[in-house]
């Protein structure tokens, strides 16, 4: 079985985001593998190891620098990688079309994994669009996955402690949530091996992606630097508690 994991090269969560020309960010910061994708990869590797003869292929769309993220994916256990080179950003609609074309060009997906969202664009939708293009079922925020002979069972987490178990036909698309597993940090040996693993580079124009009927475009980016003016609440523990209750009642008006 060929297991594809769509990974994204995103700014480090600790990076300071500087906006240039009101629409783009200064990319002179550290980019790395999207954190949710680590859970996707960990699960893909687990499934592969239970199904002899399977392979895990990491697919990534990005600039040349995105090869680092593919190498990270291979250090976490992916057997090989596909980098679709592009200089510009793409919305979720285009991204799904590109990923689908690249996967089809490469092989026959038995399973597709992604993270439940990327921490940069936070679109939460590429996996659903990918599923629709392939006509595969999709479940997001998966916390437990079981692959059976002809179907998959996936527990999806909802707020308020609700868990829904979905049964899907195979192949399917899985959006990994944080509850799915605990990714292991790669060892030095893993990293060394990943350097030698093959990465296939595709050029976007060669994929001949048809134009989409809809489009989402960032027309403005604004820094969100909220600075509050703190007021101290002091006194004994009981004074503080009383003042907080008073604030909740009179100022916030929530009780």
């Amino acid at each position: 079985m060929q297991i594809y994991v769509c990974v994204k090269h995103v700014p480090d969560s600790a990076a300071y985001i500087r906006i240039i020309d009101n629409r783009h960010i200064d990319e002179n910061i550290t980019f790395l593998l999207n954190p949710y994708d680590e859970h996707a990869l960990t699960e893909a590797v687990r499934v592969r190891d239970m199904h002899p003869g399977s392979e895990v292929i990491a697919v990534c769309l990005g600039k040349e620098d995105a090869e680092k993220t593919i190498r990270s994916a291979m250090a976490m256990g992916a057997d090989r990688g596909i980098l679709i080179l592009t200089e510009t950003g793409h919305d979720s609609i285009e991204t799904a079309l590109i990923l689908k074309t690249a996967i089809e060009e490469d092989g026959v997906p038995g399973l597709i994994f992604t993270g439940k969202e990327s921490i940069d664009d936070q679109g939460m939708q590429t996996l659903f669009r990918l599923g629709a293009l392939f006509d595969f079922p999709v479940v997001t925020n998966v916390a437990r996955l079981e692959i059976l002979a002809e179907k998959a069972l996936a527990d999806a987490e909802f707020s308020g402690g609700v868990v829904k178990t979905y049964e899907m036909s195979l192949p399917c698309v899985i959006g990994a949530g944080k509850g799915l597993n605990t990714p292991k940090y790669p060892t030095v040996r893993d990293v060394m091996r990943s350097r030698k693993s093959p990465v296939k580079t595709l050029l976007l124009p060669d994929l001949k992606i048809p134009p989409a009927q809809a489009r989402m475009e960032v027309v403005e980016l604004i820094p969100h630097l909220q600075k509050r003016q703190p007021v101290e609440i002091s006194g004994t523990d009981s004074d503080i508690a009383q003042k907080i209750v008073q604030i909740l009642k009179d100022e916030a008006k929530v009780i």
Binding site: I119, D120, A214, R215, M216, E217, I222
Partner: peptide, 20 residues
């Protein structure tokens, strides 16, 4: 145009949507 956040809340973004 929709207003949302990007880069994990570090920026606000205005997104222009086109199509049906």
């Amino acid at each position: 145009i929709a207003g949302t956040s990007r880069y994990s809340g570090k920026t606000l973004a205005k997104i222009k949507v086109r199509g049906p």
